[in-house]
């Protein structure tokens, strides 16, 4: 049923067709993920590098992780009024904590001896940040970005509830109309999009994480893809974030 819905040519054209909805979903995802990264990476680098404001950022970020997506989306819709802006604000707000946590944890995770050696050799603060801490933070930082993108893809689907476009429309419209094939097709499309984006980001992560670090991760007796996998990133980032608060 779902398959026949998906392959029906009628569903591949028009303003409510799959291509249009897919592009909408991608656009929201891209905008929110970029905006969140632009905010969270510099903040995470600053806090991680200087150690200043850690408690505030960590506490705030933890609270934000607990924010219910649907609650935030409906709240902002009622406060800011309808339209894409309120939805995009909600998406961005929800994408900030993972990136922030990943960046901060990445910097904190850098071996203390390595940072000490960098200082001892006469690197300035900036040189240390760019040449030592940032490259070492990349695996966890990009892990954070991957989490954020997944978060945004999922929340964009939820935001269809307040009228946002994207693939979530099929799901919720299908639900309202008791059109189960359409609903399930929407779910499958959203899931597929999430998986494809995650795969692409995993490849990117592979390409930009320095080889020495990948080898180091493998050397610790872990699988080759270890650094780039999620569960660890999530929990490691979370643990690092909490360290400051407890």
């Amino acid at each position: 049923m779902t398959l026949s819905w998906l392959f029906d040519p009628a569903h591949w054209s028009g303003t409510d067709g799959i291509p249009v909805r897919l592009l909408q979903h991608l656009r929201y995802t891209l905008v929110a993920a970029l905006a969140a990264t632009a905010v969270a990476v510099p903040l995470g680098l600053f806090v991680g590098h200087t150690g200043r404001g850690g408690v505030l950022v960590v506490g705030g970020s933890n609270a934000m992780r607990a924010l219910p997506t649907l609650g935030l989306v409906t709240f902002l819709f009622l406060v800011l009024g309808s339209g894409e802006v309120s939805a995009l604000v909600a998406l961005t707000v929800l994408a900030v904590p993972p990136v922030l946590a990943g960046t901060y944890a990445g910097i904190q995770d850098t071996d203390a001896g390595v940072v000490d050696a960098a200082r001892g050799m006469g690197m300035t603060g900036w040189q240390r940040l760019w040449r030592v801490e940032l490259p070492n933070a990349l695996p966890l930082l990009l892990g954070g970005v991957r989490n954020a993108v997944l978060q945004v893809v999922a929340t964009t689907a939820v935001a269809a509830y307040v009228g946002l476009g994207g693939l979530g429309r099929f799901l919720l419209d299908g639900l309202r109309a008791f059109d189960y094939p359409k609903m399930v097709a929407g779910a499958v499309l959203v899931a597929a999009l999430a998986m494809v984006l995650d795969l692409l980001l995993a490849l990117l992560q592979r390409a930009v994480v320095p080889r020495g670090l990948r080898l180091a991760a493998r050397g610790r007796g872990r699988g080759p893809a270890r650094v780039v996998e999620r569960g660890r990133t999530e929990v490691a980032a979370d643990a690092a974030m909490r360290e400051g608060t407890e």
Binding site: V114, A117, A118, G120, M121, P135, N136
Partner: peptide, 29 residues
């Protein structure tokens, strides 16, 4: 920073940069 570039510094565990090759580590200063 200037002072440290003129003074060699060796620590326990070496503190080598894991993301750089051995040659680039040595070439740092």
């Amino acid at each position: 920073a200037q002072l440290r570039r003129g003074i060699g510094y060796v620590i326990q565990q070496a503190g080598l940069f894991p993301h750089r090759t051995v040659l680039d580590n040595v070439a740092t200063v």
